[in-house]
Design a protein around this nucleic acid. Structure first.
Lengths: 160, 160
DNA sequence: TGGGATAGCATGGTATTTTATGGGCGGTCA
DNA sequence: TGACCGCCCATAAAATACCATGCTATCCCA
């Protein structure tokens, strides 16, 4: 599996959705995706928020692995399969790196003319830029508190 | 992982931002960065101060490691990802070691014609030189008091 | 010891490539 | 037929690579 910071999603980018419903994926994200392996992005409507959880093959494989690790007949696994696996859309990229989101995903994320890509490391989210801006103040408060509880890591602690 | 004092950021340097927005990274900092691995600097707008927290791959991987150590679906992790990862810009260096900061980072650090690089050991900060000069007296007072509580470190604690 | 050659660095300008975005054309399926 | 999809190409702006200059500090050898 590919690893390292160069395969992670960093930063935020706002792109336009054109008249034909096409949306350009940020160039930096395209490089983080393993498009050689699968020329597609996997999109899952978030259950908690009006946004889409997205990633490449690596992302969906990791997610599937954690679901299939559960007992095959457990209630949890079945509902996870239904809410996650069944809702996941595989959207492929055209030669210019654009995707075409299906109607129900556009609706879920309340997207109209523009879309914001927010890098979350191993995955990224797609938001309506206005909705995203609205949650930022709350996010900052939570993150500010969470930061205090993060231990200050030193390189030697993470070294192999 | 690379270690030792030759990979640390020491000293302060003030460089010019040219008409095209290019800013030369101090040569000593370029050597501390692991540019062979990833030819880029990771910049995060500080939440507390008008400056940018910066470092190389090692720096961001250490930071990401402490975030991914949190429960994947916790509110804290999500907020950290959105306020830290999503705001992190990956700026690449040209052959001469210059970077081109995006507009929102220039704004956050209130940079116009010049930028000051302040080495912090494993990371460094980029400041507007005037803003930095303004906080120095206060910093000296705090540091003077903090020094008294520093244990006397032995070389073996930091050496490989 | 002194002075010229040298190497490294910040900085400046120009050319080339990427990238986001726009539109056209031919199939396909209802 | 007409909405829609995948494909191809066009373009303007922005990002990036490439090449040039001047300064400074260092080194080396007479």
């Amino acid at each position: 599996m590919r690893r390292g910071a160069e395969t992670l999603f960093f930063g935020s980018y706002t792109n336009k959705i054109d008249a034909k419903g096409r949306l350009a994926t940020p160039a930096l994200f395209r490089r983080a995706l393993d498009l050689e392996r699968v020329n597609a992005i996997y999109c899952i409507p978030s259950t908690e928020e009006p946004c889409l959880d997205c990633g490449g093959v690596d992302y969906i494989e990791t997610l599937m692995a954690s679901i299939t690790a559960l007992d095959p007949f457990s209630k949890e696994r079945r509902s996870l399969e239904r809410t996650v696996t069944a809702r996941t859309s595989v959207v492929s990229l055209d030669k210019e790196g654009r995707i075409n989101l299906p109607e129900h995903l556009l609706g879920h994320a309340r997207l109209n003319g523009k879309a914001l890509f927010a890098g979350l490391g191993h995955s990224f989210q797609i938001w309506n830029p206005d909705e995203f801006a609205a949650i930022v103040p709350d996010e900052e408060k939570i993150a500010g508190a969470a930061k205090l509880s993060l231990r200050n890591p030193t390189p030697s602690e993470t070294a192999p």
